[in-house]
Simulated scan of single mutants.
Amino acid sequence: MKTYLGGAAVAALAMGFATETLATEWNVSLWGKRRAFTEHVEKLAELVSEKTGGEFTMNISYGGLSSNRENLDGISIGAFEMAQFCAGYHPDKNPSITVLELPFLGVSTLEQEREISMAVYAHPAVAADLARWNATLLMPSPLPQYNLVGVGDTPSSLADFEGLSVRATGGIGAAMETVGAVPTSMSATEVRQAMDSGVIKSASFAPHAHMSFGTIENANWWTTNLNPGTVNCPVVVNTDALDSLSDAHRDALLGSVDEALDYYIEYYNNETMAAWGPALDERGIERVTFAPEEIAAFKAAAAEPAAQDWIAENSARGLPAQELYDMVTGMVAEGS
């Protein structure tokens, strides 16, 4: 038995299918709360929705989909389509991008951090590394140099870090070990409670995180110029989800990355950093600045050994570790 549809019915049915096909909804896994660190994701969602007339939307969740240390795992199984994570949370899962977390690389601006990160993300070996998790690197979350907030006696020299318990991940943790500190890796959301309970005496963060996660609320001191490095926290997408997008939606997503990063950097520089000094002053937090010779000695003790260890370890994994390291340090030297 055959059923024949009139032209109007066929058109209506086709229109229904077209509408269903065009609508795309992604879930995005972040953590904590909305803050400078997540503004590029928020902006990206806004831009994509605008460019697609609301047909491509992103539901951003702050901790409701996964813990921050499990975001990459969630991406790998398609539990959500986009997520942010920090390389230092699980370096064995993403060894290639930990080159960006080595101490004392000398990156001086958010713009430079962005350019170098995007170059590393585009390297075939890095793409293959993340492909093991069905993940495609979309954009970085550029962060300034980390410094320490702490409770208790204010350090007057690097020798005073001997035995100090500090929340520090990746290369920053390795650097702190060289001056006798005892680094502990924990997620950002755990740090305030750990400081309040005395589990740690200090925490290494960028300014936005010290404010967002409350480490300055009971702190006594802040280091102004340790600058041992930063962490690399990419935004990734599930590769299958990316591949399944229509051309128009994929173009809207990928074509909005630069604008989202521009907005992020402007926001961080103009909003976050403007609020940082007053936040310290309001709480009576002492600023600690170390002598240039101490910083030079710190760098000499931490940078080269960490780099050589990283190169040896990751060359053994089959990564072009020396090539990646040379690319990063070369771009820094060129002032990229």
Rank of each mutant, 00 (worst) to 15 (best):
L138V: 09
G171M: 02
A296T: 10
V199P: 12
H210F: 03
L242P: 00
E39H: 07
L105H: 01
D243Y: 13
A188F: 14
F290K: 02
M139D: 00
S96L: 04
E293G: 06
E81K: 15
G284H: 14
S246E: 08
G171Y: 00
E266N: 09
T136W: 11
E81D: 15
D262S: 09
D247R: 15
E259H: 15
L5F: 12
A125M: 02
E177T: 09
S156E: 15
A291N: 05
M139V: 01
P320S: 07
A248G: 12
M176F: 08
A168L: 07
S204D: 06
A302G: 01
R250N: 04
D309V: 15
A36Q: 01
M82V: 07
G106N: 05
G32F: 04
T329H: 14
S185T: 15
G152L: 12
L148N: 09
D251S: 12
I60N: 05
K201E: 13
L254E: 05
D247H: 04
I311M: 10
D160S: 10
T184R: 13
M195D: 01
E190T: 08
A175P: 12
D243M: 08
A174G: 09
M118I: 13
A312F: 13
F85P: 01
V237C: 06
E323Y: 07
A274F: 09
A206N: 08
A23T: 13
G180Y: 06
T223L: 03
A274C: 11
P234D: 00
E293D: 07
E293I: 10
A127V: 14
S141M: 14
N71L: 09
P155Q: 00
P305A: 11
L138C: 02
T230E: 03
G277V: 11
E20W: 11
I172V: 05
Y4R: 08
L164G: 00
P292R: 01
E190A: 07
N134L: 03
L324Y: 08
S61I: 12
W276A: 04
A300V: 08
M327Y: 15
V332P: 02
A303H: 12
V235D: 02
A241W: 07
T289M: 07
V126N: 00
E323K: 13
F56H: 02
A135N: 03
K93M: 04
A23Q: 08
A260S: 12
Q84N: 14
L226F: 06
S117W: 01
T154H: 04
D160F: 11
R283Q: 06
R283L: 11
M58N: 10
A333D: 12
V10D: 01
S117M: 07
A300T: 05
M331V: 13
Y146R: 07
A275P: 08
R192V: 06
P207M: 04
I311Y: 05
F56V: 01
I295D: 01
G53F: 13
E20Q: 11
M1P: 15
T154F: 14
V149G: 05
D73S: 11
Y4Q: 08
P124T: 00
G64H: 15
S204C: 06
